[in-house]
């Protein structure tokens, strides 16, 4: 068991290193998130009340699209350079390989986004009491986005114009995460209890973390045929 865990961590570490050395994908997602959220005050105008009301929605839609943007290349490089064949044949179960790749992806794209989100929240005038919930919702929600996106990224391997297809496939699956996360932040801003919303978000994560890698691995096996 520890050998499997060690092999898993080794794969995560290698992917984080590769992701950071490639640089562009991780940075692109973060810059996209910052720029899109910064565009809203410019587009809507400096109406503090309106911005504060839509802040949660804006942050989450931007986070979701930023995630989608970086998702397309998740398995594509491994598929193109033959690494995927070798990973399928490696002793580590393919479900865990998929989970490792998604975890590495989250570490280099989801985590920076999580750290910068309070700043963007402040920019949009998100009400003070909602900041804690924003953080919690991102901690619970963004891994789900990465896991769901991983399924899509595996399914579109080898297709042309995979990016468009990926958006069509995955955006509908992001909807529950979006709804629960935004309603949690809105509830916090209104001074209501946030627990049920966060629990729903956590249950989505429990579902995606268990079923996501299985679906992802099945799609990858199909892709290497």
């Amino acid at each position: 068991m520890t050998a499997v865990l060690r092999a898993w961590i080794r794969l995560v570490r290698r992917d984080v290193r590769l992701g950071l050395s490639a640089g562009s994908d991780a940075a692109a997602a973060l810059v996209f998130f910052i720029v899109t959220t910064a565009l809203f005050p410019l587009g809507i105008g400096p109406e503090a009340n309106l911005l504060a009301r839509i802040a949660a929605g804006v942050l989450w839609v931007a986070a979701l699209l930023a995630n989608l943007l970086s998702m397309e290349r998740l398995f594509a490089t491994d598929y193109e350079d033959g690494t995927l064949d070798l990973l399928v044949l490696s002793p580590l179960p393919l479900e865990l390989v998929a989970l490792a790749k998604v975890a590495a992806h989250w570490l280099i794209t989801g985590l920076p986004l999580l750290l910068i989100a309070p700043l963007m929240g402040a920019l949009l005038g998100l009400p003070g009491p909602a900041f804690g919930t924003l953080g919690l919702a991102l901690v619970l929600g963004t891994p789900s986005l990465s896991l769901l996106g991983g399924i899509g990224a595996a399914l579109v391997l080898g297709t042309r114009r995979g990016g468009v297809l990926l958006a069509l496939l995955i955006l509908p699956l992001f909807v529950p995460v979006l709804i629960f996360a935004v309603s949690a932040i809105d509830a916090a801003a209104a001074g209501l209890t946030v627990r049920p919303h966060l629990l729903l978000l956590a249950s989505v994560l429990a579902l995606t973390v268990t079923c996501g890698p299985i679906a992802c691995a099945a799609a990858l096996r199909q892709a290497v045929r």
Partner: peptide, 24 residues
Amino acid sequence: LDGIKLPLTVAANLSFWAAADHHG
């Protein structure tokens, strides 16, 4: 396809598979 990661060193490329194929 060679399954080689271009940013990693030659030794790092090989060590990864050596460890992966033997569980370390």
